[in-house]
């Protein structure tokens, strides 16, 4: 405990905890929507696209990589989520195609053109997020905070419409809701969350941050609101526990956070079984 208090004196630790909590909150809120719309793997696909964009931004030596990563990822999200319905290449195949293609090209470009002294280390850090959250610049912190607040505000303000579009898109359209516009908004917000979450858990583990809290909450609750609130709480708790454990026990941040998510899922699954037996 004394060591934790000592670590909390460091500004970069406090920044990491604040940004980590906000990212966990954002990803859990929209995670329920993605899981219910059967788009769980979109996080993986978009994170690989973001990795490819990051590789290009590193080669171009941009002052802030977000300038390139964010618009490219948003564009990919819009294309993947909007073209999944009536195209020759269906949703899951399109995601897989874009995902592995971007990952391969990103790594290839980094090896061919990057002048970094440790390319493998840079790639490893980006893919697994071992210490990325602890090495954020002031600009990164402020951008993350502002984007997270915007994402949360959008979810709270458009909650009813997101709910309608998630559960029954045809009914939403017949009720006068512009489902296409809200699907587009969800796609853009997911892209923003993915770009932010890369700092916390890395490209390869982002899906866990989106999926596990929602699935854990679904083991216990049935209503959309309760699942959303529960997944938000579980995600924040897991992220805080994972980050503190990694700082105290010298483990990589990204994988420790995901391990905490998995443990929480296991506990919720047990609670769900006990609850089911009690109600039977």
């Amino acid at each position: 405990m004394d060591k934790l208090i000592m670590y909390l004196q460091y500004p970069f630790v406090r920044n990491a905890l604040i940004v980590g909590v906000l990212i966990a909150l954002c990803s859990s809120l929209f995670g329920s929507t993605l899981v219910l719309k059967r788009f769980s793997f979109i996080g993986d696909g978009l994170s690989h696209v973001a990795f490819g964009a990051l590789a290009i931004a590193s080669i171009l030596k941009l002052t802030n990589n977000m300038i390139l990563i964010l618009p490219v990822t948003v564009l990919a999200a819009v294309l993947l989520l909007k073209t999944g319905q009536n195209t020759r290449i269906k949703g899951d195949a399109a995601i897989a195609m874009v995902s592995v293609g971007a990952l391969a090209f990103g790594y290839l470009l980094m090896n061919l053109f990057s002048k970094s002294a440790n390319i493998s280390g840079d790639v490893c850090t980006t893919l697994f997020g071992s210490t990325s959250i602890l090495t954020l610049s002031d600009a990164d912190v402020w951008i993350s905070i502002i984007l997270s607040v915007v994402v949360i505000a959008l979810f709270v303000y458009f909650y009813n419409r997101i709910f309608a579009v998630t559960f029954d898109e045809d009914f939403s359209v017949s009720a006068g809701i512009n489902a296409e516009r809200y699907n587009l908004m969800i796609a853009v917000v997911i892209a923003v969350i993915i770009v932010l979450a890369m700092n916390l858990v890395g490209s390869l583990l982002i899906s866990a941050l989106v999926i596990f809290p929602a699935l854990s909450a679904m083991r216990i609750y049935r209503s959309f609101l309760k699942v959303t609130v529960c997944s938000a709480i579980l995600s924040v708790v897991s992220t805080l526990a994972g980050m503190i454990a990694s700082i105290l026990y010298s483990t990589p941040v990204g994988s420790t956070v995901v391990a905490a998510d998995v443990i929480v899922f296991g506990v919720c699954w047990l609670i769900g079984i006990l609850k089911g037996r009690k109600n039977a």
């Binding site: 460091y10 630790v13 602890l134």
Partner: peptide
């Protein structure tokens, strides 16, 4: 400090 903190602090 732990190795995670050391690396992050030196990086900063």
């Amino acid at each position: 400090m732990s190795s995670t903190m050391v690396y992050a602090e030196v990086y900063n």
